[in-house]
Computed example of a mutant assay.
Amino acid sequence: MTSSGSAAAEPRGRFGRWRDQAVALGWLVVVWCLLWGEISWANVVGGLLVGGAVLLFFPLPPVTFGGRLRPWALLVFVGKFVVELVVASIHVARIAMQPGYRPRGAIIAVQLRVPTDLNIALTAEAVTLVPGTLVLEVDRAAATLYLHVLDTHGPADLELARERTLAVEQRIVRAVGSAAELRLVESDPAEKGTTQ
């Protein structure tokens, strides 16, 4: 019974690895075509060759998806992300256009509540895409993002940036996280982040 169960689990595990590799290869081809600025047969074939070489010679640790896609929460995440993107872009443009104004930057540490590789990567990417905030370093073991925040005037601005980052993490987990991950981000707000 045990041997047949493990034999049945092995093909599923192998299929999962092949599926993950195929998805990664697909994304690498998309990125390759975007870098060249056009989609052509030559770029697709070149992307397949380069992507295959990258996956063969520089294998990444497997990132598994154990969550569940929630369409409404995903829509909320996208909507709020677009609003934050527009508001932050206007703010950074105003800083750039204001003569003589020298914004003060700061570096803060934000400890995420869900320490999975996928959550750390998605949160870091979403935070970095919003103008005025940049991820400088990721401490994978501690699930901590080190962010450079533009135009800070005091501790209240730093705490606001920390809370915004944790809110982004919460929206991502609500959209694609597992039930256990959802419980982590819905816990007591006093447990949020670090105060470094």
Rank of each mutant, 00 (worst) to 15 (best):
Q111P: 08
G5S: 10
L184F: 01
L134W: 00
L49P: 10
E84C: 05
P71I: 13
A126T: 06
V135A: 11
F65Q: 02
T64F: 06
L75C: 06
Q21N: 11
T116Q: 05
I107L: 05
G154Q: 05
S40K: 01
R94F: 13
W32N: 02
A106W: 09
L122G: 06
G100R: 11
R164T: 15
C33V: 14
A167D: 08
A141W: 10
I90T: 07
R164I: 10
V30D: 04
G100M: 09
R19K: 09
L147Y: 00
R113I: 06
F15H: 08
G193V: 02
V45H: 01
W27H: 04
V138W: 00
L75M: 07
A106M: 12
G47T: 05
T194G: 07
R102H: 08
G47A: 02
Q111A: 15
A7R: 13
D188F: 00
V76E: 07
G66V: 12
V173N: 03
P71Q: 15
P103K: 04
P71T: 14
R174Q: 14
A88R: 02
F65V: 04
G46V: 04
S4P: 06
G5M: 13
I108E: 00
T123R: 01
V63C: 05
V29N: 00
Q21D: 15
V45F: 01
T133V: 01
R12G: 02
E186V: 02
L28A: 04
A121W: 11
M97F: 15
A161S: 01
Q98M: 07
V63Q: 11
H153A: 12
G66A: 14
A42G: 10
T123N: 06
S4F: 07
A8S: 12
V54L: 15
G79I: 09
E137H: 10
G52D: 13
S40P: 06
A73F: 09
L74C: 10
P189T: 01
I120Q: 05
T64N: 09
A7C: 10
D188K: 00
H148A: 12
F81I: 13
L85T: 09
T133I: 02
R17T: 15
G177I: 13
T165E: 08
T123Y: 06
V78I: 14
E191F: 07
I107W: 04
I39N: 10
Y146N: 04
W18Y: 06
E137I: 09
V185S: 06
G5I: 14
P71K: 13
V78W: 14
Y146T: 11
